[in-house]
Structure formats: C-alpha cells, structure tokens
C-alpha cells in the first residue's frame, strides 16, 4: 500500500505542475494568441499527418512508430498547449476510427505535445543537435508517462512488441515498474529522436511566408551554420545521449 500512496503523491505533483502552467499561459494571454484560427485549422491536418505517416511507416516495415510528427510540428509552431491538444485528440481519433486500444494512451500523446512545445519555447528546436536533445527529452517524458498506464491498466505487459523486453526483465527478477520503465527508455529514444528530426526537416522546408502567419514563428527560425557540420554534431550528440541512457538504465536496474 505504501508504494501506491507514494505514486499518488507523484501523480498529484504532476497534475499540479500542469495546472500551474495552464493557468500561467491563460493569465498571460499567450494561450489566446496561440489558439488562432490558423492553429485550429492546422490541428486536424496535423492529426491526419500523424495517422497517415504512421501508416506509411507500417507499409515500409520500419521498426519505429513515427505517429507523432504532426503533434511535434504543431507544438513547435503553435505552442505547447496546441501540441498537447493535438496529441490527445490524435489518440482519441485513432481510437475512434482505427483501433479502440489506443484510447488509454492519450496522456502519453498529451505529454509528447506539451514537452516538445516547452522545449521549442526554450529555444531547443533551432538546429540539428538541439532537435536531437529535444527528441531525447520527449522520449524520457513519454517513457515515464506510459509506465503507470502500462502497469495499472495492463499489469506491466502490454499488447505491443516491446513487451518481450519487459517480459525478459520480469523474468530476471526486476520489479514491474523498473521493467516497464527501462523498456520505455530502451525503445522510445530512437522513435522520438527520429520524429523530432523529421518534424525539423519539415519546418525547414516550409516557406517563410507560411511560418510568419503561425502563432510562434520565432520557434521555427533556424540557427546559422553549415547544415553538414550541424548534422555531424547531431550524430555525436545522439551517441552521447545513448551512452547517458545506458548509464541511467544501469542505475535503474542496479538500484
């Protein structure tokens, strides 16, 4: 019982932080500016992009999901709340049209939008290596948020292919939470870093005139520097992040 109450405290803290952020952006009027008519029109297109690209990836048989490119796109150009809304509705519509199993995972999509929007506001979406870091942070958030859903709703092992890793970790004597969390840390970064980089490539390809009409054009400005060099730095950063993730995994599993 003590574990449950401890987790309930974390849950309440997380909700409180979100509410404070929400009230802050409402009071400062930033929210009203973010949800312009263009944003409201962009959201359905972004949801459709999520679903269409998700299906292209299935056609190409690639080992990633890439089902949140539209979410990250909206989060960067229209702020974290528009991103969070896109993610949430995206999952609800995925559940309502393709597979009802998608419903319970909407908080994960909410956080993908929110976190990538916050990172973009902080200026972490302006060149390749910063985008890689953003993707990594989004991956951590989504691994952490999906853990309680997997544990409480599905008893740890979910219906996705990565459950085999969780099952293996459970067999080696890990606790359920540790096993699910480390599976998330193993699987998510590849997917989310690729998502963030594709979203960045798309933003770079948009015309200046189009971006200027969106609520947060300043987030989409690309920092100078030869893009070749940038890309090499990005690859280096990804390798560093992978080493960091391995170190963290060791800590989780060891402790």
């Amino acid at each position: 019982m003590s574990i449950i109450s401890e987790n309930a405290v974390y849950f309440i803290i997380a909700v409180a932080i979100i509410v404070i952020l929400l009230v802050w952006s409402y009071v400062t009027g930033r929210m009203r500016k973010d949800f312009s008519t263009t944003t409201w029109v962009l959201i359905p297109v972004a949801i459709a992009i999520n679903i269409a690209i998700g299906q292209i990836v299935v056609t190409l048989k690639l080992p990633v999901f890439l089902d949140s490119i539209g979410t990250v796109l909206v989060a960067v150009v229209a702020g974290p709340w528009a991103g969070a809304l896109t993610g949430t509705l995206s999952n609800i519509i995925w559940g309502a049209t393709i597979d009802p199993n998608a419903f319970p995972w909407f908080p994960v999509a909410f956080f993908i939008g929110l976190v990538s929007g916050l990172m973009a506001n902080a200026g972490w979406f302006k060149n390749w290596w910063k985008v890689a870091v953003t993707g990594f942070v989004v991956a951590l958030a989504s691994a952490i948020v999906s853990t309680p859903i997997a544990v409480y709703l599905y008893g740890g092992i979910t219906a996705s292919g990565s459950s085999f890793i969780t099952a293996y970790l459970l067999q080696t004597g890990q606790g359920v939470v540790q096993a699910v969390l480390s599976t998330g840390f193993l699987v998510e970064p590849v997917d989310k870093i690729t998502t963030a980089m594709l979203a960045f490539a798309i933003i770079q390809g948009l015309s200046k005139r189009f971006v200027a009409r969106l609520p947060r054009p300043e987030n989409a400005e690309v920092e100078g520097g030869a893009s070749q060099t940038q890309l090499f730095i990005a690859i280096g950063v990804v390798i560093l992040l992978v080493l960091f993730a391995a170190f963290m995994l060791g800590n989780i599993l060891g402790g």
């Binding site: 959201i43 359905p44 297109v45 949801i47 459709a48 992009i49 679903i51 269409a52 519509i93 049209t97």
Partner: peptide, 8 residues
C-alpha cells in the same frame, strides 16, 4: 479530422 483522414 474525420473528413480529412480518408483524403489524406
């Protein structure tokens, strides 16, 4: 969205 997805 429900209208756009089939088009997309």
């Amino acid at each position: 969205t429900l209208q756009i997805i089939p088009q997309m």
